[in-house]
Design a protein around this nucleic acid. Structure first.
Length: 980
DNA sequence: ACCGCCGGGTGCC
DNA sequence: ACCGCCGGGTGCC
């Protein structure tokens, strides 16, 4: 518990100050939590909750464990089971407490979960004790074959926490088994047993450990250079009205090939009649089911959405284009307004013209041949086609109803195994039915036929990019084409399975998906032709409902779109592979054994294997990638200026006062040695100073002089303060349950912020005591604290507005720009939403028309604001006030060409990301970025430290844990200008 | 299973 | 014959 706590703090710390993280890629060397940046544009985890979530989902059994040792055991009863193993094959050990003959039974299964036999009872007795007490995980390798059909030897290795090693060794000894400790102890993919029992195992090379630096570099490059496939280019179907760029044609070609072409997945080879996996040594008579789909991991701005749309339209069954109805002469002006089944009242905020009903501004009004229906309870936009057309097309594309046997069988296999591994049910009764799939005749790799009744594509995306998808479909599909699209969203969504599966495209959000999941979700009943997970890293944590819901979707083709497939560690990849059903790694156990643990331990072979896997399924190009010596995309130039700002004497006085107060507090913490423990408070101090740099009225006066022994009322007050601070900081804190911006924010006694409905759900679903999803401390429903209602929008209005040096600096720039070129649009970015509010006053005074985008806005509002800003109408706003983290990635703000970063972010990557929202595909003008930095202030120090750390990154990685810690303290001292 | 083990049959060679 | 030895039955947990 204590360990976890300090872990969280460290992680928190590391994140809030990204500069720390860069340089210490491994914040605790024991955990080897490698910071994986897929490239330099990639983001580090940037919000506190992300960081905490990363730490909280730490899987102790996979990383923290050490190898206790290995023993030789015997697998018996082979003749009763059909599961086969090859020499060197990994096997799973599954407890079978319900076995009628022996409560201690441990069964042995192969990679596909087929039972091979049992562990001999004497050893099983010992193992049962260890396994049931969760003291160790046992892994088996059949290191040599057998010369009879009754039993065979198996190498068993025991893994677990160092603390219980002694215990496990003793238990085994009591049963007469001696744990052999490998020569090298806990290292390498095979661990000790490979050392001990290596004779007879196919030579895969001795485990070579990588240095930390090599490992780091390897991860940096994991997703690089994946455009080697010479698939050439493919033209999109002619109904795609936007011409694809060369790299998009390549991507389309690759995606079509991945969906259509047969071929063995990596590590599988054909050996005679059998298919053999060289990693697990498993072999099977059946062709391993290949993955139809993969990860499109192009940088943002390269057109993943467009490419995916092209894929949907271009590659239907048998490589033919999606059959769509074309109208010769479209009359785009008069689509019908159609009401959904329940006679919806049209919401007042919906703009309604004669012809069309629109929700927000996210769907342009000229959608030809589509009806736009506003369901009750917007923000949803419902796009459906009219009845007559639907019918006409129905008749055309007849879909024979044939059951997809192959796919479902394979799925069941993996589920079976998953169940078997958890030991929940043990059905030894039924014999394995013989698999008769006769595929071995052909010399070619046989191809599993696709379910011809599966015709619809499901797109799952975060709410924030939903409107973008709709717009892109709108924009890139010919006007005379009718596409059946349905936005599965909102309370009135049509849950008819028949209706949904008859669409060409269904779009929904992760939230809807997970809400529906387990609630007789129609989405999960449909056999989709294709499922696309946009921003697929949303499912990187396999424990979330969202991820579970995504994994359960049935589809013959599966795609993940993500600019950042790895955010923190290899662990992020598992859910992705599991979603893609990349066997056998869709079963966590095998993933852990074959990939994750070896890689986290720095095993070169493990890393190579991972690279092979990733390469097999991924296409990634960055903005700097080149095709045939030419850059993928030629973007206009980008220039970054830093503008120093000097504080006025009054501002300086206020700033210095806050600084010396903060210094005193920190000095106390340093003296107590409790700097890290009070890190949250220190962040608050730093934040105040940063706010002072922007505007003297930003820092909120809080009542607290933090003391440890607080009364309940004081505690409550402090929590409210903290919550207020989090919300006011403009950091767009996300709720770790729904992973969206927090709505109806509440803070727990352990100081974590959630949406009230989300955490309420957690509490109600937990049987016994509910625990905080982030830190696992106990939470009670009546202890959730929220900001008192009357306070919500107080503060800034009370006082007379005043200016600040930074405001002046900005206004000077804006006025000058307006004189130079009327058409220039600007993004004004701050981390503090209150600062954005402050800025509104002078903007209005000077007659600028502006819009604002921050985390507190509903999706509908955001879409509307973005479209207004992007519009080239002469009366469109020329300025967008943007909260640094609002909206996340994927926003397209190319109308803007000048970016003003009002305050430095801890994480330069966040700034970079923000700039990229306008410096991306579609930007026509040169981009000019101005960063305001207050002279002689914490802002300068932040920049300084960022630079220093970045230099360190490029030099060495050898920092020890303790030196990291002391450096953090040094950093704080630097930031606070305190003598060391 | 070309084993080990069990238990019944058997008992100089 | 309260043994040894032989050979058949048998065999995961």
């Amino acid at each position: 518990m204590l360990l976890l706590f300090s872990l969280l703090l460290q992680q928190q710390f590391t994140n809030a100050g990204a500069m720390f993280r860069r340089w210490g890629y491994s914040w605790d060397s024991d955990f080897h939590d490698i910071d994986l940046f897929s490239d330099r544009y990639d983001t580090e985890t940037t919000t506190l909750s992300q960081a905490i979530r990363a730490a909280a989902t730490e899987e102790p059994d996979a990383d923290g464990s050490v190898l206790f040792g290995s023993i030789k055991g015997t697998v018996v009863g082979l003749r009763y089971y059909t599961g086969v193993v090859n020499r060197g094959e990994m096997v799973g050990l599954v407890r079978e407490p319900q076995n009628p003959y022996d409560r201690n039974a441990v069964k042995v299964v192969n990679v596909f979960g087929q039972q091979v036999g049992h562990i001999k009872k004497e050893l099983a007795a010992a193992m049962a004790r260890i396994m049931d007490n969760n003291q160790a995980k046992v892994e088996g390798v059949v290191f040599s074959g057998t010369n009879n059909s009754f039993s065979m030897p198996v190498a068993l290795s025991f893994w677990g926490q160092e603390e219980v090693k002694e215990n496990v060794t003793k238990t085994l000894a009591q049963h007469g088994f001696k744990l052999e400790t490998g020569v090298r102890g806990a290292s390498g993919s095979g661990g000790g047993y490979q050392e001990t029992y290596s004779r007879g195992i196919p030579k895969k090379g001795v485990t070579v450990l990588l240095t930390d630096e090599e490992l780091k570099n390897a991860f940096d490059n994991l997703f690089e250079g994946l455009m080697e496939s010479k698939d050439g280019e493919k033209e999109a179907a002619d109904v795609v009205s936007t011409p694809l760029l060369p790299h998009q044609k390549q991507a389309l070609s690759w995606m079509c090939a991945r969906e259509n072409k047969s071929g063995l997945p990596p590590f599988w080879e054909k050996r005679g009649d059998l298919y053999y996996n060289s990693l697990t040594c498993f072999s099977s008579k059946d062709v391993p089911e290949r993955v139809r789909g993969g990860i499109l991991a192009d940088d943002m701005g390269l057109g993943k959405t467009l490419t995916t749309i092209a894929l949907i339209l271009t590659n239907f069954h048998q490589g033919k284009p999606l059959p769509v109805e074309k109208t010769e002469k479209s009359s785009p002006t008069k689509p019908l307004v159609k009401t959904s089944t329940k006679a919806p009242q049209i919401q007042p905020e919906v703009s309604s013209t004669d012809d069309v009903v629109l929700v927000g501004a996210s769907v342009p009004s000229n959608i030809p041949q589509m009806e736009v229906v506003c369901a009750e309870d917007a923000p949803e936009v419902v796009v459906i086609e009219d009845e007559a057309n639907k019918k006409s097309r129905k008749g055309k594309k007849k879909a024979p109803k044939r059951k997809n046997s192959k796919g479902s069988v394979a799925l069941m296999d993996s589920l079976d195994f998953a169940a078997a591994l958890t030991g929940s049910t043990s059905n030894t009764g039924q014999k394995k039915m013989k698999s008769d799939t006769n595929t071995s005749g052909d010399s070619n790799i046989p191809q599993c036929p696709e379910d011809p009744s599966a015709t619809a594509t499901l797109i799952v995306c975060p709410l924030s990019v939903l409107s973008n998808w709709l717009e892109q479909f709108e924009q890139h599909v010919s006007v005379n084409v009718k596409l059946n699209m349905y936005l599965y969203y909102g309370a009135e969504r049509n849950r008819s399975q028949k209706f949904l599966s008859s669409q060409d495209v269904v779009i929904t959000t992760y939230n809807v998906l997970s809400t529906d999941f387990g609630n007789k979700s129609p989405l999960h009943k449909i056999n989709w032709l294709r499922v696309v997970l946009d921003e697929g890293h949303f499912i990187r944590n396999p424990n979330t409902q969202m991820s579970k819901a995504a994994l359960e979707l049935k589809a013959s083709r599966r795609w993940i779109l993500s600019g950042t497939p790895i955010q923190n560690s290899v662990k992020d990849l598992w859910t992705l592979l599991a979603f893609l059903r990349l066997k056998p790694f869709d079963v966590k156990e095998w993933w852990n054994r074959v990939i994750q643990r070896p890689v986290l331990r720095g095993d070169r072979t493990g890393l190579q294997n991972l690279q092979t896997l990733v390469k097999y399924i991924t296409l990634r190009r960055t903005k700097t990638s080149e095709v045939n010596g030419r850059p993928l995309v030629v973007l206009p130039e980008k220039t970054v200026f830093v503008e120093q700002v000097e504080l006025s004497p009054e501002e300086r006085a206020e700033y210095d006062l806050a600084k010396s107060e903060g210094q005193n507090t920190i000095r106390r913490y340093v003296a107590e040695g409790s700097v890290l423990k009070n890190y949250a408070d220190i962040l608050v101090i730093l934040m105040r100073l940063r706010q002072h740099c922007c505007h003297p009225d930003l820092p909120t006066k809080t009542s607290s002089e933090p003391g440890s022994g607080a009364t309940a009322a004081e505690l409550r007050e402090r929590l409210i303060d903290k919550l207020r601070l989090v919300l006011a900081s403009g950091s767009d804190e996300e709720c770790s349950v729904c992973l969206d911006s927090v709505r109806f924010p509440v803070i727990t006694h352990c100081a974590h912020v959630y949406c009230r409905p989300c955490i309420a759900k957690v509490i109600s679903t937990e049987d016994q005591r509910a625990r905080c999803p982030l830190c696992r401390s106990e939470i009670r429903p009546n202890e959730l604290v929220e900001v008192p209602a009357e306070e919500e929008e107080a503060g800034t209005n009370t006082k007379q507005w005043r200016t600040s040096s930074k405001v002046q600096a900005l206004m000077g720039n804006l006025l000058r720009l307006r004189l130079e070129d009327q058409s220039i649009k600007c993004l004004i970015v701050s981390q503090f939403t209150r600062f954005l509010t402050v800025l509104e006053t002078p903007l209005r005074a000077e007659g600028f028309s502006f819009v604002r985008l921050d985390g507190s806005m509903t999706q509908k509002k955001r879409a509307q604001v973005i479209q207004e800003f992007q519009s080239d109408a002469s009366d469109s706003p020329s300025i967008m006030l943007l909260s640094l983290k609002a909206g996340g990635v994927g926003l397209n703000l190319t109308a803007g060409s000048h970016v003003f970063l009002m305050d430095p972010a801890w994480n330069p990557a966040t700034e970079e990301q923000c700039i990229d929202r306008c410096h991306r595909l579609g930007q026509k003008k040169n981009v000019v970025v101005t960063k305001f930095i207050v002279k002689d202030s914490v802002e300068e120090k932040m920049v300084e430290i960022q630079k220093k750390k970045q230099e360190l990154v490029s030099k060495a990685f050898g920092a020890t844990n303790s030196s990291q810690k002391s450096s953090r303290i040094d950093d704080i001292k630097t930031l606070m200008e305190m003598a060391i």
